Amino acid sequence: MATDPVAEAADALYALVPEEFTAARNERVADARAAGDTEAAKAIGALRRPSPSAWIVNRLARDEPDRVGDLVGLGGELADAQAAGDGRALGALVAERRELIGHLVRLASGLADAAGRSPSRAVLDEVEQTLVAASVSADAGAAVASGWLVRAIRAVGVEVDLAGAVGGGEPGPPRRLGKRPAAERADTRARRGEGRADAASRGAARPPDADRAAETARRERERLVEARRQARERADDDEQALAEASARFDAAERRFDDLETERDELERRLSQVRDELRPAERELRIATRAREAAAAEASRSARARDEAESALDDVDR
C-alpha cells in the first residue's frame, strides 16, 4: 500500500467517477495545506481529472487486474513472434489479442453501466484503442496497469505518445512486457493446432465444385480486404481529427481545472481576509474616537495657552 500522500491521493481520486474528481481533489489539497505539507498540496492540485474512457480503463485495471495483466503479457509474446518472423505464431497471437480485447471492452462497458455511467460508442472505441496500445508498448502497459490514466492512449505502429497520459507524472523507465508461462502458451497453441487439423480434415472431403467456390470466396475476400483498407484509411483520418479535438479538449480542461483551483484559493483567501477585516474595523472605530478626543483636548489646550499668553501680555503692558 502506498505511503506517499500524493500516491495515496491519486489512488483514491482515480477510483472516483470523473464528476466527483475535482471537489475531492480540492478537499485533499486543503487537507495537505492544513497539515503544512505545501509540496504535497501542490502535487495533488496538479492531478488532472480523467476523461470518461480513461476512468473506465482505470476501473478495469482495478477490478480486472488479471485479465489486464494477460493482455500486457501477450504483448511480450507478440513482440518476440514479430522479431523472430514467426508468421503463424504472430497470426495466432493477434487473433488471441483481438478476442481478449473484445472481452475486456465488454467487461469495461459492464463496469461503467454498473456505476451508472453507460459509455457511448466513441468512449468504448477509446477504451479499445488504449487496450491495444497496452499490448504494443511496455510503457503503455505499465500506464494502463497503474490505474492512474488521465486520457486515452493510442498506438501508431509501435509508437505510443504517453505525454500527460498518467496522473502524478510520467510512467517509469521502459520495462519488458511480461509473458505467460511456457506451459500455458503451449496449451493454447496446441488447441489452435487441433482446430487447424480438424479444418484440414473437413476440407479433404470437399465436393468436386469446391474449387469454384473457393475461387469465388477468394475474390470476395480480396474485395473485403480492399474495403477494409479503405475503411481503415477513413478511420485513421477520423481518429486523427478526434485526437486533435481531444488535445484541444484536454487543454481546455486543464485550463478549467487550473482556474477552478485558483478560484477556490481566492475564495479561501477572501474568507480569511473577511475574518481579519472585522477586528480591524473595530480597531479603526476605536482609534477614530481616540483621535477625535485627542484633537478636542489639543484644541482646548491650545485655546488655554493662547488666553494665558494674552493675559501675560496685558500685564506686561
Rank of each mutant, 00 (worst) to 15 (best):
A183S: 11
A83I: 01
R191W: 04
G178V: 05
A138R: 02
V127I: 01
S299N: 03
R180G: 15
G172E: 03
H103K: 12
E262T: 11
E99C: 07
S120T: 12
R229G: 10
R25N: 01
R185D: 11
L149I: 07
V127F: 04
L312K: 13
V160D: 04
A92V: 02
S53L: 06
E215G: 02
G102Y: 00
R248M: 03
G36N: 08
S118N: 05
A293I: 00
P171D: 13
D70P: 04
Q272D: 15
A293E: 06
A142C: 08
A134L: 05
A46Y: 05
A12K: 13
I153Y: 09
R185G: 09
G75N: 00
A287P: 00
P207E: 13
L13W: 04
T38F: 08
A95C: 04
A133R: 09
I44H: 07
E215P: 01
D313A: 15
A200T: 10
E226W: 06
E128R: 15
A142G: 02
S271F: 10
A10R: 15
D257G: 10
I286K: 07
V132W: 10
A7Y: 03
D236F: 01
A205G: 12
A295L: 05
N26G: 00
R98W: 05
V166F: 03
R263T: 11
A251M: 11
D316S: 11
G147V: 04
R229P: 05
P119G: 00
I286W: 09
L270V: 07
I153S: 03
G172K: 12
A114K: 02
A235C: 01
L312Y: 12
E265H: 11
R106T: 12
E262I: 07
A245I: 02
L270H: 06
A311H: 11
A311E: 07
D125L: 09
R223M: 05
R274A: 10
A217S: 10
D86R: 01
D257P: 00
V123S: 10
L162M: 07
A32W: 03
A304F: 06
A79H: 08
V136Q: 10
E283V: 03
A287F: 00
S118F: 00
E281P: 08
E281C: 12
E96H: 02
D11M: 02
E233V: 12
E159T: 09
A61K: 01
A231D: 05
R98A: 03
L124H: 04
G85S: 03
A295I: 05
I286A: 14
E19I: 01
A293K: 05
T188E: 11
D125Q: 14
D211W: 15
R232V: 12
E126I: 03
E184G: 08
D70W: 04
A122K: 14
V6S: 11
E309K: 12
T22R: 13
E253N: 08
V273M: 07
V17D: 07
D161K: 15
A32F: 00
P50V: 04
D125K: 14
V144S: 06
E239L: 15
E170P: 00
F21V: 02
D211S: 06
E226D: 14
A32E: 07
A83R: 10
P52G: 04
E253L: 13
A235E: 12
R180E: 10
A165M: 05
